[in-house]
Structures are given as C-alpha cells and as structure tokens.
Amino acid sequence: MPELVISAIGRDRPGLVEEVSRCVLDAGLNVADSRMVNLRGRFALLLLGEGSAEHLAEARRALSALGVERDLQVAFGSEGGDAAPPAAGLAFRVETYSLDQPGIVHRTSQLLHRLGANIEELETRLESAPFSGDAVFRMRLRVTVPAGVGPQRLRSELAGLGTELSCDIDVEPA
C-alpha cells in the first residue's frame, strides 16, 4: 500500500493535533506510525500514513491548505512503498545521563555508526534533576546492532565514550 511521510512544524497552539489528524482522517489516510513533540513552544509532527493514491493526493492537498491557514510548515516525503528492509541484528536500548554539554548526540551516533549499528529512534530531554535542580541531559536511543557486534563490545565501547564525555550510559536489550 502506498505510503506518505508528512512533517509539520509551527507555533504550538491548543487544537493543532486535532486539526492535523482530522485532515488525515478525512483524507482517508491510515496513520501507521507517528511522533509529535512540543519543543519549547514549537509544535513538530512526523507522521507515516498509508492509503490509496487518491487518499495520498487528497491528504497532500488538505494538509497544504491547513499549513497556509495555520502558519505551519508542511512537507511531504517519498510515496514509494519500497522501504529498506529492517536491519538484521540485535535490538538495544541505550540511555545516557550527564550534565548538559555539547557533543553527546554527535559522538554517540558517530560511535554507533562506526560499529555498523542503525539508530531506529532517538529522543533527548533536558530536565531539572530532583533535589539538585541541575539540568540533566538524557538521551534515549533504540538501536539495531549487527550480529557480529556482541552486547559486551557495545557496552565496553559505550562505557569508554562515557568516560571521555563524562556521561553515564546504560545498555539494555530491547
């Protein structure tokens, strides 16, 4: 079934999710997967919809119009149904904890790339720590690691990076 990736970014207002999802629903699109986050007052949405070619076309039209009306930047991704096959290997959850500093996302993703791992999902958060109030930076990743790289090696490589970046890193099978 044909697919469409939709992204929408704009100033957060109450009702935005309702309006966007109404467009998608009225266009006859089925929501296969989505992520929505409020980034300090800006609304950002990523959505994967499935439907017939007509549905996809209607979704494009309706969402573009909504974008103009609601001052949202709306963009559309490939309609092709030939998604890359899921990477073979072991799934892990990686979580890092540190005081905020530059480079954690970059260095971690660089290390994972070097190991041949694929990042399926990434989320970061800057949160006031209990009691101390320090801004603690937390990163959560879901990664697929090629079979040749065992959990031992993943853990020890990440631990080494953690020491370098002054960051605590947990690795758990997903």
Binding site: E127, S128, A129, P130, F131, S132, G133, D134, A135
Partner: peptide, 22 residues
C-alpha cells in the same frame, strides 16, 4: 527556571525547598 528561584532564595537568606521532586 526553578533553579533560578532556588538560587534567588539564597539572596533572601533561605535554603530553597526541594527542587524537581517528584
């Protein structure tokens, strides 16, 4: 942020209440 309120309370001669828990 809550940290700023906690630090400003020091100028007023107080230890801040518990921050960010729960």
């Amino acid at each position: 942020e809550v940290e700023d309120v906690a630090k400003r309370l020091m100028d007023y001669g107080f230890h801040a209440p518990t921050m960010s828990f729960p």
